[in-house]
Each structure stands twice: as C-alpha cells, then as structure tokens.
Computed example of a mutant assay.
Amino acid sequence: MTFPRLIAALTMMLAAAGSQAYDFKTVGANPVILYDAPSTKGGKLFVVPRGAPLEVVLAYGEWLKVRDVNGELAWTEAKGLSARRNVIVKSANLKVRATPDDAASTVFTADKGVLLELSETAAGGWIKVRHRDGLIGYVKNSEVWGI
C-alpha cells in the first residue's frame, strides 16, 4: 500500500470511529475518582458522586476515558461504572410531562442538576424518566445531559 493510500485509509477509519454513537455509563453504588492518567498513580482530579452519568470516550484495558457534564475529560476505572442510565437536567424548572408532547400536563418540575433515571426512549426525541421519589414522566433529549 502506498503512503497516500495508507493516510487515506487511516483518515477514513478515524472518521468512522468519530461517528459512533455516544456511550454513557452511570457511576455505581460508590463515588468514583477521576484521574489525569489511566492509573491509580495518576493525579486525582475529581470525585464524582454515585448516580452521575459519564460519557465514555475511550476504553483502555480496565480504564475508561470519560467526559463529565461540564465537558471535562479524565480517566476512571471501569469497575466503578454501571450500565444503568441516568441523565442530568440542563436547565432550571424543567417541566416533566405526562406524555411525550409539549402540550401534555406537567407531572413535576425538576431543577438544573437533578438526576433522573432513564427508563426508555420514546418517539420524537423524547425520553421517559423516573425521579428518585418515584414520579415518572417525559422530557426532550435536548433538555437533559447523558443521552
């Protein structure tokens, strides 16, 4: 293979990898530490509380490079994350609706930063969520982070 073809092939592979769907995980039962390198010997950057969603950017053995709700990148051990899905409300006074419709009645209102459990996706860019108090409703994908 010639050098220009090799470069073209590598570029296409990188473009394909960049177009993959986002993979989100949730911090498990215990808070996790985010490091500046994929090792417990790396510098400790943050502690992320249980239930918080993290976007998985890269996997490296037992370590994951993740992005938090603020856009910060760091490393954490994969064992501390769960496949369970939570989302974070992005704006104040988010109306959680009874059905996936802007005109639907409001079940409850959630403040910015509130964690909601993702129950299922619905048509038209809506998701079904559950508050820790047991209330269930629908919000638009664009109104939360972690999906």
Rank of each mutant, 00 (worst) to 15 (best):
E77D: 13
I88P: 01
V107L: 11
R67A: 08
L58V: 14
L58F: 15
G113C: 13
T106K: 13
M12G: 04
A8N: 09
P53L: 09
V107K: 13
T106E: 14
R97A: 11
V66W: 02
F108V: 15
K79P: 05
V139M: 03
R85Y: 12
M12P: 01
A16Y: 13
I127C: 06
P4D: 15
W126V: 06
H131L: 06
A21T: 07
S39G: 10
W145G: 03
L34R: 14
G18M: 15
T2G: 13
D133R: 05
F24G: 15
I147P: 03
Y60T: 14
K79D: 06
K79N: 10
R97E: 04
P38V: 00
A78S: 02
V144N: 04
H131G: 02
L45Q: 09
A37K: 09
R84P: 00
W75F: 08
P100R: 00
V27T: 06
K140M: 02
F108N: 03
K41F: 09
G80C: 07
V144Y: 02
V56M: 09
G28I: 05
L45W: 13
I7P: 01
A59K: 09
R97H: 10
R132Q: 05
W63M: 03
S82K: 00
S105T: 13
A16Q: 10
S82A: 01
P31H: 14
A17P: 03
L14I: 15
D68S: 03
V57L: 15
G43S: 01
L73S: 07
W126D: 00
W63Y: 04
V89L: 15
V66C: 05
D111V: 12
V139D: 00
E77P: 07
V129T: 05
E77F: 12
A92Y: 07
G42Y: 01
V32H: 08
W63Q: 01
R50A: 06
V87R: 04
V96W: 02
M1Q: 05
A103D: 12
P4E: 15
R130M: 02
W63A: 00
A110Y: 05
E120Q: 13
G113K: 15
Q20S: 12
N70T: 12
E120L: 09
L58I: 15
K41C: 08
V32Y: 02
R97K: 10
K25C: 04
V144H: 01
V47I: 12
E143W: 02
S19K: 13
T11P: 01
A74P: 03
P49V: 14
V114N: 11
